[in-house]
């Protein structure tokens, strides 16, 4: 983990309420796809944890949805503004176990962390398939970005206005060796049932600190209590206990 100041390079709307923000600063603590950063905003007491969409040596990019006070503030920031950010939080996805045909399944704002993962898997010479699920056509984002990586991309919309009609699980009909997923909990549960290989799930929880100090985001797993922010957000299929 590292605390440092980042400068906003761009902050643009991708859909009506989803934005992409690129920031420049010290990204050395970000070591795996699926990790997150924790952003301090003026006027908000707690930081806002947002998963990393992409990063290189000098920049980190996030994609976030305006859902409350904090993300609304973020949406009004512009180029040149600076933010105090904790980077390199969480465990991230492990690509070493993917086999040669990994399947990535993302729903809504669960899609962004899969981008850096897809990039890494492609770089490792794997044949990557991606299913992106949204409610409706106007909410679709990042389809082209995944295609440009060389991944096979399938889009589903619940209302059928774009791609395959239905849920992400309705598109799981290709051969795959392993799966990675991120999205709302009902979707994660459906993926858990629909996918028969091993896989990794990224979870979301209300956090206090984001770095393991407050125990605000704990969950029970087969292998004991885990902090979503520290031993997560990525859990392996075999350790998940569905409680709620």
């Amino acid at each position: 983990m590292k605390q440092s100041l980042f400068t906003i390079c761009s902050n643009e709307f991708l859909t009506e309420n989803v934005l992409k923000m690129k920031l420049s600063g010290d990204t050395s603590a970000i070591t795996a796809p699926g990790q997150f950063i924790n952003i301090k905003l003026k006027g908000c007491y707690l930081r806002r944890p947002i998963s990393v969409y992409d990063c290189d040596n000098e920049t980190v990019t996030i994609i976030y949805k305006v859902v409350g006070e904090g993300t609304k503030k973020m949406s009004s920031l512009s180029k040149g503004d600076t933010l105090d950010i904790l980077t390199g939080l969480g465990n991230g996805y492990d690509t070493t176990v993917s086999g040669d045909k990994p399947l990535l399944i993302g729903g809504g704002v669960g899609v962004p962390p899969l981008y850096m993962l897809a990039k890494k898997l492609v770089a490792e010479g794997k044949s990557v398939a991606v299913i992106l699920g949204f409610n409706t056509k106007s909410e679709v984002f990042c389809e082209e970005e995944f295609r440009n990586l060389g991944a096979d991309v399938y889009v589903t919309t619940v209302d059928g206005s774009y791609g395959t009609k239905g849920f992400v699980t309705d598109a799981v009909n290709m051969p795959y060796t392993y799966f990675y997923t991120c999205g709302p909990e009902p979707m994660l549960k459906a993926v858990y049932k629909a996918c028969n290989t091993d896989g990794q799930f990224s979870f979301e929880e209300r956090m206090g600190c984001g770095f393991g100090a407050c125990m605000g985001c704990s969950c029970k797993t087969v292998t004991g209590y885990k902090r979503i922010c520290k031993e997560g957000p990525v859990l392996r299929k075999e350790e998940i206990l569905w409680e709620k």
């Binding site: 929880e205 209300r206 206090g208 125990m215 985001c217």
Partner: peptide, 13 residues
């Protein structure tokens, strides 16, 4: 283990 989540809520200050 403690209490079920959500365990955290933000307030002014």
């Amino acid at each position: 283990f403690g209490n079920p989540t959500p365990r955290i809520a933000e307030c002014s200050g």
